[in-house]
Design a protein around this nucleic acid. Structure first.
Length: 643
DNA sequence: GCCGTTTTCGGCCCGACTGTTTTCAGTCG
């Protein structure tokens, strides 16, 4: 893993020194976390919030709705599981599903059967699916949002509807107050109370939290868990360990020093942490709390001998684990949070709740042991999404993921010349401290008036100044670049004669981010083919949880970038992370070079490189896929090839 | 609903916690 709180397996020992400089202090809960937060909020706060949906995401939502309706209707669970899988497939598909329908490749897609194909085809042709519409009318529409309420599931929703006529969240609230729901079989006072709290929780939390906020809180709480008497080791698990861009809740796993030590004492101490505003549940091996910001944190306790199995289990993803368990089954084994067991040794009825099974596990102490016993090479947490990593592991063909210590350049940074907060010299010093061999200074171009974009005269003076500093600086190559706006028609914000003065050029879209896919494609293609462009910065312009950004035809963009020798950026700045993991993955398989840059507007923000590396790792990128791992000389020849 | 070199029918991952229960259903991850 990349740094200590998440430290796992298989990190090469020679990265230790570099990791020291790279350890993000904010993870441990000190001040620079707050710096990132304030920057993020300031940047995100200026942004108009409106999502544009692509066909894929519209259809994904349609399938999720259909799945929800089937759950409430009480149809066999596997039907709704199948539709949920289709929804996920659509969301993660880099290309427009309309293309697959047109060329017929949809009929070969695994997981999309006859019914799903019909829904997709109908929807693309007419904008509506009669099958789903019919399904939707079979229950009141208001029941579907009720599934979002924690502790309220499809069975109970159906019960309230059929027995008490509840058809919406508002009616549910009224009924809870009036006592209308009392006297139902299987529903007591406590259940009603937990539904009341669930409704409250839903309005308070407001959905998934961003990675950066979750890292901050998780870092603080992890430190406190490690200091509870009786705790032997503790580690972050869950989607945070996989570095997902948004986090539903934080999972922390702890083991006990001695097996006779009580887990109950530990969960008790955990629920009394200062950050805790509400205790959602507490048992021998598990506790759940809510923090002031509305983030849920779960603590799980296991015997130390089972730490690896539990870490694997609670790191997920759920989809990854489901597939692993089915592989275990085909090999006559069963996999659970306690370990991997041979079925003939494993007597389920004999098992005590909250205690490891009597049987001797095939593997349980460490994650590598478990993967190995299943005939798989070790899969890094960032890859565990069931996006083909298990099949690669079976054939020993997993990529060797890029690490933070492989990064020797940051090619997208701002200074006080435009809207940055530090001088060229300060940025150079900070880059030297990070051990970088190249730093690209890339302030904004003239159209970015809000960001104090540089007029031609100011740009030329700025370049001169960068060159002077570069001249007298040892140990790092300082490049005079620019982040040039890609205007809405794909033309650039400076004339060629101006661009030719620069060492390299990043071209980025900042405006017209709601234009349609065809326009967006042509816009990006034109920029890529431009003689002086070397990198496309934050290619979609999306902001996590705020703006969906451009939806170009990626296959054309990738093909063009590959041919032209232009790198596509993984912008490491929060809340951009653009390209995202899915697009970066398909860019890689199309043979495109990626460039991970922080877009730092201050020296502190240079630390966000780790976020970009996490996206790259989730995308399965190796060192050789990333421009920023090149020595200055090789980097310059990559740029030179373009002109 | 989807899938198939052990299946075109019969499978489809597993356990903890909670609440309403005297043996289990629902929810969650």
């Amino acid at each position: 893993m990349i740094f200590s709180p998440f430290s796992g397996q298989n990190r090469s020992p020679n990265t230790n020194i570099r990791n020291k400089r790279a350890t993000p202090a904010y993870l441990l809960g000190n001040t620079s976390a707050r710096t990132i937060h304030s920057k993020v909020n300031r940047r995100a706060g200026t942004v108009t919030i409106r999502m544009i949906m692509s066909t894929n995401s519209e259809l994904a939502e349609l399938f999720r709705t259909a799945a929800a309706v089937m759950e409430i209707k009480g149809e066999p669970v596997f039907k709704s599981i199948a539709f949920t899988k289709v929804a996920r497939l659509l969301e993660e598909m880099p290309d427009d599903i309309r293309q697959a329908v047109e060329d017929g490749s949809i009929s070969r897609m695994e997981g999309i059967g006859k019914s799903s194909r019909k829904i997709i085809e109908d929807y693309i042709r007419t904008g509506v699916s009669p099958d789903v519409e019919e399904l939707k009318t079979s229950i009141p529409a208001g029941l579907i949002p009720m599934l979002q309420v924690p502790s309220l599931g499809p069975k109970t929703i159906a019960l309230f509807w059929k027995q008490r006529g509840i058809t919406s969240l508002d009616e549910l609230k009224v009924a809870l107050e009036s006592g209308k729901l009392e006297g139902l079989k299987g529903i007591g006072a406590k259940k009603l109370q937990s539904i009341r709290e669930g409704i409250e929780l839903l309005s308070a939390s407001g959905g998934r939290k961003g990675l950066v906020e979750a890292l901050d809180i998780a870092g603080q709480i992890l430190k406190q868990v490690r200091s509870i008497p009786g705790v032997k080791r503790a580690q972050i698990a869950g989607s945070l360990r996989r570095w997902k861009e948004t986090i539903g809740d934080v999972d922390i796993l702890a083991s006990l020093k001695q097996s006779d030590h009580s887990g109950s004492d530990v969960t008790e101490a955990f629920t009394r942490f200062p950050q805790v505003t509400r205790v959602l549940g507490r048992g021998q091996t598990k506790a759940s709390v809510l923090t002031a910001s509305g983030l849920q944190v779960d603590l799980r306790i296991v015997p130390d001998d089972h730490f690896g199995a539990a870490l694997q289990y609670f790191t997920g993803s759920k989809e990854h684990n489901v597939k692993l368990r089915s592989i275990a089954q085909t090999q006559g084994m069963t996999l659970n949070e306690w370990g991997l067991y041979r079925i003939e040794d494993y007597d389920k009825s004999d098992k005590q709740t909250g205690k490891p099974p009597e049987a001797k596990p095939v593997a349980s102490k460490s994650e590598p042991e478990i993967y190995s016993a299943l005939g798989l090479s070790y899969i890094e947490p960032e890859l565990r999404e069931d996006r083909g990593e298990i099949e690669l592991a079976q054939n020993n063909r997993l990529p060797k993921l890029i690490e933070l210590s492989d990064i020797v350049a940051d090619l997208h940074t701002h200074t006080t010349a435009s809207d940055g907060q530090n001088s060229i010299e300060q940025m150079v010093e900070a880059a030297l401290r990070l051990g970088y061999k190249t730093l690209g200074i890339t302030d904004h171009s003239k159209s970015q008036v809000i960001a104090n974009g540089l007029s031609v005269e100011r740009l030329l003076a700025h370049v001169k100044q960068i060159r002077a500093i570069a001249e007298r600086t040892r140990g790092i190559r300082v490049l005079a670049g620019c982040e040039v706006d890609i205007l809405s028609d794909g033309s650039l914000d400076y004339e060629d004669a101006v661009l030719s003065e620069l060492d390299f050029v990043i071209a980025s879209p900042h405006v017209s981010l709601k234009q349609d896919g065809e326009k967006a494609t042509n816009r990006l293609l034109r920029a890529i083919e431009h003689r002086y462009v070397n990198i496309i910065g934050h290619p979609t312009g999306r902001l996590i949880n705020a703006r969906s950004g451009l939806h170009p035809d990626w296959s054309r963009v990738f093909e063009s970038a590959k041919q032209a020798g232009v790198a596509l950026e993984i912008n490491a700045g929060w809340p951009r992370l653009d390209l995202n993991d899915i697009n970066a993955r398909s860019a890689r398989s199309a043979g495109v070079m990626l460039s991970i840059n922080t877009d730092a507007h201050s020296v502190d923000q240079l630390d966000q490189m780790i976020l970009g590396v996490s996206v790259a790792r989730r995308a399965g990128l190796e060192k050789s896929d990333v421009l920023n791992t090149l020595e200055p000389r090789d980097l310059m020849s990559f740029f030179a090839k373009k002109r």
